[in-house]
């Protein structure tokens, strides 16, 4: 069951986060902890603020008030450049669909984060290839996203999120556009790979079967979080 993860000091902490988009208040006092290496499912009704919270945790959105701490640093206090650097190095992302650059081949898509972080082309593509292999899509390396199926594309996206071996991977409904069999396969490979690299995963999902791959869940409702205590 919930094995050895979820102990000690949290890796990523949201504390009393408020955020509004104009009139709509998306988060009203959300607090959450993400521990190193754990898989945390974010569940909750549509429009409750899951994606918004995820984006805050990842430093894509800046909260109106409250703090997001990664280690001992407050994301809100960092400059855009610093946050970009952090995202390049420490975070990875998988979204529902439409995330691969259509003109690049699958291999180049996976290599892209490494290249953005300054790696050479050869080295980046070599590492990208091993990740495609781990996600069992090595044969797609030379194809463009438009030429692969949704499930295959999603596995390429997972490879891309993992290739930098980030500390946290943010996944917003990664299987949302897939049928259950494909979704299941993606999740299996995704979570196994994440556990291997020791990456924490923040997983937004509506599907209980997908959430079942997590170690614990947090429920977002009306912009607030009810967080399940980590198991002792």
């Amino acid at each position: 069951m919930t094995t050895t993860v979820g102990r000690g000091t949290p890796l990523l902490t949201a504390d009393d986060v408020h955020l509004s988009f104009g009139e709509t208040t998306a988060l009203r006092g959300a607090s959450l902890h993400v521990y190193a290496g754990e898989v945390l499912a974010l569940m909750g009704p549509s429009g409750s603020g899951k994606s918004t919270l995820l984006h805050c945790l990842a430093g894509i959105l800046t909260p109106g008030s409250g703090s997001i701490r990664y280690g001992d640093r407050d994301l809100a206090r960092m400059s855009d450049t610093e946050r970009s650097t952090l995202r390049r190095g420490a975070f990875g992302f998988v979204f529902q669909f439409g995330q691969l650059v259509p003109e690049l081949t699958c291999l180049e898509n996976v290599a892209l984060p490494l290249r953005l972080a300054g790696a050479g082309r050869r080295e980046a593509q070599r590492r990208a290839a091993t990740w495609l292999d781990r996600l069992e899509v090595a044969d797609l390396a030379g194809k463009r996203p438009g030429q692969v199926s949704g499930g295959q594309g999603q596995r390429v996206a997972v490879a891309r999120a993992l290739v930098t071996e980030p500390a946290v991977i943010f996944a917003d409904e990664p299987t949302g556009a897939l049928d259950s069999l494909n979704g299941e396969l993606v999740m299996k490979l995704f979570i196994a790979a994440a556990r291997d690299t020791g990456a924490a995963v923040v997983l937004v999902t509506h599907e209980p079967r997908v959430a079942a791959y997590s170690d614990r869940e947090a429920v977002v409702r009306d912009g607030r979080v009810r967080e399940q205590e980590p198991a002792r």
């Binding site: 069951m1 919930t2 209980p208 079967r209 079942a212 791959y213 997590s214 170690d215 869940e217």
Partner: peptide, 8 residues
């Protein structure tokens, strides 16, 4: 979810 995790 607890049970589902076990099953998973």
């Amino acid at each position: 979810l607890r049970l589902m995790r076990v099953l998973t």
